[in-house]
Computed example of a mutant assay.
Amino acid sequence: MPTSQDMTTHLDPGLLDALQHQVAVFARRAEQTRLGGVGQVRNSMDRAAYLLLNRLDREGPMGVKALAAGMGIDSSTVTRQVAPLVDTGLVKRTSHPEDGRAVVLQLSPRGQARLEEVRSSRRELMAQVTDGWTETERESFCTLLTRFNTALSARQAGLPSVDTETPPAS
């Protein structure tokens, strides 16, 4: 089995150093700005809340375990992150239609409206940050960033790297 050292010997170390540096800078900048958008809703929704609401919007009502599995995190983490969303009325807890004992999480109308405000603000930020880029450059960046995130997710899950060009899910 090849070692990590074996896999990188044929790659340009300078390029790998530059890549890891740019990823670190991106992570710091993303955390500092929270990529929250512009205007009144700037920075007004944290990353965890945004990702949870976004997944519920795209995939519909689901239980905590399904939500956790889809996001690649622990159920207890989802439970902890969802609690304030329920408290503020952005997410509703309802009974499962087939098993009344099970709880299903669902985006509330208030959550839907709030999510759209944040999405709109973040779309504006992305437009501003990529001002001067061509549509092809934006598409290429999105494709490469999606591939990068997919590879990181696969590595975190202990799976072999999957090279796909799927659009971003969350």
Rank of each mutant, 00 (worst) to 15 (best):
A27C: 10
A27R: 13
A27Y: 02
R28A: 10
R29K: 06
E31L: 09
E31I: 05
Q32L: 13
T33I: 04
R34W: 07
G39C: 04
Q40T: 11
R42T: 10
R42I: 02
N43S: 13
R47P: 00
A48C: 00
A49R: 03
Y50D: 00
L56Y: 00
E59G: 00
E59Q: 14
G60R: 00
P61Q: 11
M62Q: 15
M62W: 00
K65G: 04
L67T: 01
M71V: 09
I73S: 00
I73L: 10
S75A: 12
S75N: 11
T77H: 08
T77F: 06
V78M: 03
T79H: 11
T79G: 14
Q81E: 13
V82A: 07
P84V: 04
L85R: 00
D87G: 07
R93K: 12
R93Q: 15
T94M: 10
S95N: 13
H96P: 07
P97Y: 03
P97T: 05
E98A: 07
A102H: 09
A102F: 03
A102V: 13
V103F: 02
V104S: 10
V104W: 05
V104D: 11
L107S: 03
S108E: 03
P109G: 06
G111M: 01
G111D: 05
G111W: 00
G111E: 03
Q112W: 05
A113I: 06
E116W: 08
E117I: 04
V118K: 01
V118Q: 06
R119H: 09
S121D: 04
R123K: 14
R123H: 14
E124A: 15
L125W: 08
L125N: 05
M126P: 00
Q128W: 01
T130C: 04
W133P: 03
T134N: 03
T136I: 12
R138S: 10
R138Q: 14
E139Q: 15
S140I: 15
S140A: 15
C142K: 14
L144S: 07
T146N: 12
R147F: 12
N149R: 15
A151S: 15
S161E: 12
V162W: 10
T164P: 01
